[in-house]
Simulated assay, not measured.
Amino acid sequence: MNGLEMRFLGHSTVRLELAGRVVLTDPVLTARVGPLRRTGPSPAPSAWADADVVLLSHLHGDHLHLPSLRLLRGRPRVVVPRGAGAWLRSRGIERVEELAPGEEFVDGDLRVVGLPATHSGHRWGPRSTRGPQARAMGHLIESPQARVYSAGDTDLFDGMRELPPLDVALLPVWGWGPTLGPGHLDPARAAAAVGLLAPRMAVPVHWGTLALAGLTGVPGGPGARMRSLLVEPPRTFAAAVNAAGRPVRVLVTEPGERVALPASLGEARP
């Protein structure tokens, strides 16, 4: 696509090249995240070493992953939900900038707008009152040629229908376990989000990457279900979008692979 390149690095981590910048969303780059294990190879350093901007949607450990942030070289600008900057700096992360829904971050021709999300913003999840907390959010990522919505973690919210025309929507379709807690999209609800957003293309993310250690090897029902959930959600999502008759291309992309965007966007966005 003219002016936009994308690679799905796994979970919610996407590498975007636009406006002369390399942007990473919610980088998880290691073989493990706490009790979770990566089910395939970790991204090669060449996929993330040249990052200019890092966008963090919320504070959960599978999105704001400190060991992965510490791998980044070149001092990228790290954009964190407003209120979490001091906590992140105290963990040794440099060049931290804060953003809230409705605020803008600009770097040359790159423009990022903070968007709402319906999801817990607490570091340790919705049932904890200890530790840092900042409002969970999504991002509208723009260049003169392309407009991308990165949802982070969210459930449906009415503001989705109010976003400007989108070229690509990065939509979560599952998670890392056999069930989903509140504030997430499953394949059916992600397909409903497509109906609200009306993007030209949708890329399912937040699937096929992480699982509780040992769970995929458990015989019988629990293991079989987890193995299925590492494969089926994006395909179920694509089928639901097609069944609804949406004029949207769903680009199912395996973790680690380049997103097969079309050759050109055509006219630049206003």
Rank of each mutant, 00 (worst) to 15 (best):
P116D: 15
G102S: 09
M160Q: 01
G131P: 02
R130C: 05
P165Q: 11
G125Q: 00
H119T: 07
Q145R: 15
P164R: 14
R135D: 06
L110E: 07
W174K: 12
T154A: 09
V112I: 10
L115W: 07
W87N: 05
W124G: 01
G159H: 11
D155A: 15
G175K: 04
D153T: 13
E104S: 12
M160Y: 03
Q145D: 15
G159N: 01
P101G: 06
W176Y: 14
L140Y: 06
R135W: 13
W174P: 13
G152F: 04
S150K: 02
P178A: 14
P165F: 00
G177M: 07
T129H: 13
Q133P: 06
L166P: 05
V113W: 03
A136P: 00
S90F: 04
A136M: 00
R82Q: 02
A84Q: 00
P116G: 06
R111Y: 04
G181P: 13
P126R: 00
P81N: 06
E162V: 01
A134F: 11
R89V: 14
R127D: 13
R89L: 12
H122V: 06
L140W: 06
L140I: 07
F157Y: 15
R135N: 03
G102P: 09
P116E: 14
P116A: 11
G83F: 12
G138I: 06
R91T: 10
S90D: 07
L115M: 13
I93H: 01
A134C: 11
R135K: 14
P116N: 13
D155P: 02
D107L: 15
G131R: 04
G85I: 03
P172Q: 08
A169C: 08
I141N: 05
A100V: 10
I93P: 05
L140C: 08
A151P: 05
A146L: 04
G114H: 10
